[in-house]
Amino acid sequence: MPDPGRRPAVAPTFSALGVRPLAGIVTLILSTWALSGLDAAGKWVMAAGVSLWVLCWVRYSVHLLLVLGVVLPLRGPRVLRSVRPRAQLLRGSVMLLATLCFFKTLSYLPQAEATAINFLAPLMVLSLAPWLLKEPPRISRWVAAGVGFLGVLIIIRPDAGLNPVGVAWGLLTACMFAGQFMATRRVAVDDPLTTLVWSGAVGTVVLSISMPVLLPQVLPVLREFQLLHWVVLLATGVLGALGHLLQIQAYRYAPASLLAPFVYIQIVAAATLGWLVWGQFPDALSWLGIAVVCGSGASLAAWEWRRRPTRA
């Protein structure tokens, strides 16, 4: 066993960094801010008149170009090869649907509430894992899922003033993200960077096919864009690529079970950006619901982390 006090003779590579919990937590928090920035930028350019489809096309195209620019020099063309290409196509398709649904949700709901509803997705996966993923049933997961759903009900309560259409899109988005998480399990045999490339490629190809029909409809809006509009639109792809690369790096530094509670910091980032950009801030009851959702997920992660040595 190497002495932790000694400096390694050779610097660790991108794929073999060892366990560094603090670095993993900080990197994951940075990724949540980048992804919340993506959501805020997308919501802003849609309000400026860009259609949902064009927004997602730019987001995926820029994402793919940036990821290829980072990944190919590190890994070479072999990173493009997948062990399960059909599963990658399925995951990329579900991810595209989830992205479309979430940006549609953001066109109706404040960013913090929309993000909070999304966190119902991992609880859905955990509660359905015995049937969908053939994992042993655990009462703790079902309790956490039930409590998390109660938190979502507090957020979307009738007197919250949320658009019912946006709430419906938000719940559909959570289902899409749950499907994406389960599809990710099927491509776990691939390098995470391979999955990242395929995710961007599927969305880019599918949306590019539709652009000859959709792009002429939005050209009058794009012609009126100023420099700031173009910067924010292109930033959706930059922030998306950066967020996912940071996320992958975080999980190379530290195990997922340790990082799971810190994922919920994204709601703080979403609420902060929603307040700074649109002056939208959740009320006290909405914060209670958000706290219930975050608490259920974080408590479950902490519980399973504590049980890990016992199971081992």
Rank of each mutant, 00 (worst) to 15 (best):
D191P: 05
T105Y: 05
K104Q: 12
I155V: 11
V147L: 09
R186K: 12
K134Y: 04
L96T: 08
R81S: 11
T115L: 04
W131S: 00
L80Q: 04
Y108A: 11
W198L: 02
S208M: 10
I155L: 00
E113H: 05
V205Q: 14
L162N: 03
V167I: 14
G151R: 12
S82Y: 12
K134L: 08
C175W: 00
K104D: 01
P130K: 13
L120N: 08
L162Q: 03
R75P: 01
R78T: 09
V152A: 07
L162M: 05
V125K: 01
A121G: 05
L193H: 14
L90Q: 12
L132N: 00
V187W: 10
P110M: 11
A178G: 01
P130H: 13
C101A: 15
A98Q: 03
S199M: 14
S199C: 03
W142L: 15
A174P: 03
P192V: 12
G200D: 09
S107T: 14
L72A: 06
G203Q: 10
L96K: 05
C101Y: 10
V206D: 01
P122D: 03
V197P: 04
L106D: 01
T115V: 15
L123S: 14
L150S: 12
A98C: 10
G170P: 02
V165G: 06
L172E: 02
V125L: 06
D191F: 02
R78Q: 12
L100W: 01
G203R: 09
R75L: 04
L133V: 06
V83C: 06
S208W: 10
L126M: 11
V189L: 13
D191T: 08
P77R: 15
P77A: 14
P136L: 04
D191E: 15
L128P: 05
L123K: 09
V167P: 00
L96N: 03
A201I: 07
P130C: 13
M95N: 12
L96S: 05
T173M: 08
W169I: 04
R157H: 13
R78V: 11
T194W: 00
A112G: 12
V143R: 05
A116I: 10
L100R: 02
P130A: 13
R84P: 09
R86P: 00
T105P: 06
L126R: 00
W142D: 07
L97W: 07
I156Y: 10
G146T: 07
V205W: 11
W169N: 01
L106Q: 04
I156G: 06
R185W: 06
G148L: 07
L80W: 05
F149L: 15
L89R: 02
E135M: 14
A174C: 03
T173P: 00
V202F: 13
L132M: 10
W142I: 11
R75N: 01
S107A: 15
E135Y: 14
V197C: 13
T99Y: 11
F181H: 02
F102L: 06
